[in-house]
Amino acid sequence: MALILEGLGKHFENSEEATLHEINLTIETGEFVCIVGQSGCGKSTLLNLVAGLDKPTSGKIILDGEEITGPGADRVVMFQEHGLYPWLNVIDNVKFGMKLAGIPNDVQEEKAMHYLKMVHLEEYKDYPIHQISGGMRQRTALARALTLDSKVLLMDEPFSALDKQTSNILREELQNIWQETKRTILFITHSVEEAVYLSDRIVALSPDTGKIAGLVPVTMPRPRHVYAPEFVEMRHQILEIVRGKTI
């Protein structure tokens, strides 16, 4: 059992055509799935539907047998902009979700420290958010998301506002964390390279029709090397799909 999207569609009231059309997708527990597509193709829309922040106009989303009706801690989202609270320091931000869940303080502290270590931020735990770098902020947001043991981790271009070098380091770390914690991750990116690097499976959205243009399993062993011939080949293949050249 896992996350199932069934005939999912979204048609915004004020737009002529549906943004998403008949999306069918099953994501298995523990799977790392990336959704790629050009800007404006509906990636964030899809993620918001799964997050429960927006409602589909057709179809449904089922998580572990239950239909999704609204946002919840079983589907934590990590956004492109970190979404951390500037009135809290690093560790209090990490504890935020646990505080909402009413988890005892000592457990909060222990878990927060555990994940802060995992993202290499334990030394910065008392820093205010505005005194840490963009990369550290995304690490903090990741630690915060991890503390909630959600069934699916939703990530909407979490590294795309960072410089290339930082974003490469973070995707490597994310991969290690994923292998260590065995989470189910639905990851959105416009970077095909990032998708090929991270995914078990890539969902390519078509640029115009709002449909899935291709579903490509990635079986290369990890860690992957972006200059390996297979990698380059796959990257090229997916780029073609994303650009709408082959169906």
Partner: peptide, 19 residues
């Protein structure tokens, strides 16, 4: 994004207002 983040972390109405 502040409220969105809180909602996806499971905040209820009351928590949303207070926290």
């Amino acid at each position: 994004i502040y409220t969105k983040a809180a909602l996806t972390m499971g905040a209820n109405k009351k928590q949303l207002y207070t926290y």
